[in-house]
Each structure stands twice: as C-alpha cells, then as structure tokens.
C-alpha cells in the first residue's frame, strides 16, 4: 500500500460515522431507522438481535446500529459501544409508566467509558399518539439538564409520520462533524 492510498483511505474514513440507536423496547428504534431509510414501516416486528444500515446523508456515510431493547437484550448493548460517534436514545413519549426505567437505563449508558466521547441525541418519539408527553416533560423526567458529560439535544418526533427525524439527525451530524472532522 502506497502512502497515497493510506491517505485516501484515511480521508474516506473521516466522512464515516458510527451511530448507535438504543432505547427501551417498543420505543420505535427500528421504525425510526427504516423511516429514515425510506422503507416500509408497517411490517416491523420487535427486534430480536440487531439491524445494521449504512446510508449516505449529506455526504457522510452513516453506519446505524439498531439493537433490540427488550430487557433480556440490554446486557448485550455494551458489545456495540466501541468507537461509537453518536448515541440516539429513543423514548416512547406515550409510555409514562416506564419513563423511570427509561431514565435509569440512559444514565447507566452515560457512565460508560466507551461512550464518553459520543454525542447524545434524544428522540421523544410517538408524538402522533394522543397521550404523548411533550419533549419538555421528557427532558424533566429524564433529568437531561443534569447531563454535563455529553453534548445532548432532545427532539420531538414521530417515526410513523417521519416528522422531525431529519432535524434530529442533522443536529447530530453537525455536532459530530464539528468534533471530529475539524481538519476539513
């Protein structure tokens, strides 16, 4: 491999990001991923295992890792932490009963050393449902204001209608790009 090829490879790699999608079960992680990719969302089943999708957006190559959120799968989440640039935390805004669970799982993640450098985007999903909490309410319930270790942002969205998905991901890309692609 010549020096030029190495440089080229490095350059290519720079435009690549690894994004990890996590959240409790039934939060809508797979639906967000599929909707973002323009696929049919009406036939999604609870994720047993994980999905990976690579897509191009604004000249970036995004590697999405969507890992199942069932209780029994959460212990496997840490297998996916390595070299993650951005963490998408998906919240089911209509599921008030488990908001506490949701907050606990999130704070556990934020203590993870391997996620220390990652940008955190919180999707307050399912805004199309009647009983959905507002993003302000979720911000309070998850005590997001206390997060000092990560850059974070909360965006209300609906995976079913696709509302605000782009806004959220764009914010995340900007934040990650500003952090790691400063050479450009």
């Amino acid at each position: 491999m010549g020096l030029l090829t190495i440089l080229k490879k490095l350059k290519q790699k720079e435009r690549e990001m690894r994004l990890l999608i996590l959240g409790l079960d039934n939060a809508g992680k797979t639906t967000i991923l599929k909707k973002f990719n323009g696929e049919d969302v009406s036939t999604i089943s609870p994720t047993l295992g994980f999905n990976i999708k690579t897509l191009e957006h604004r000249g970036f190559k995004l590697n999405f890792w969507d890992v199942g959120g069932q209780k029994s799968l959460r212990s496997y989440w840490r297998n996916y932490f390595e070299s993650t640039d951005g963490l998408l935390w998906v919240v089911d805004s209509a599921d008030r009963l488990r908001l506490q669970d949701c907050g606990q799982e999130l704070s556990k993640l934020l203590k993870e050393e391997r996620l220390a450098g990652a940008t955190l985007l919180i999707f307050a999903n399912k805004q199309d449902l009647p009983g959905a909490l507002t993003k302000e309410a979720i911000q309070e319930a998850l005590a997001l204001d206390e997060i000092k270790s990560h850059h974070w942002c909360i965006v209300s969205c609906s995976a079913v209608t696709g509302e605000n998905l782009l806004t959220g991901v764009d914010w995340m890309l900007d934040d990650i790009a500003a952090r790691i692609f400063t050479a450009d």
Binding site: T134, E136, A137, A141
Partner: peptide, 27 residues
C-alpha cells in the same frame, strides 16, 4: 388510513402539561 386514526384522539395541549406531573408521580 393513519390520518384517519388520528382525529378522534386529538388531545388538548393543556392536558399534556398536566400529564407531565403524572410522569413525575409515577416515578
């Protein structure tokens, strides 16, 4: 179809504010 299902359930925004307290209580 998805739009069809939406109208009968539209909740006033004030209500969701109240619900916010509910989230805190259940915590």
């Amino acid at each position: 179809r998805t739009q069809d299902t939406a109208p009968p359930v539209a909740a006033p925004p004030a209500q969701s504010g109240e619900v916010d307290g509910g989230g805190g209580a259940s915590e």
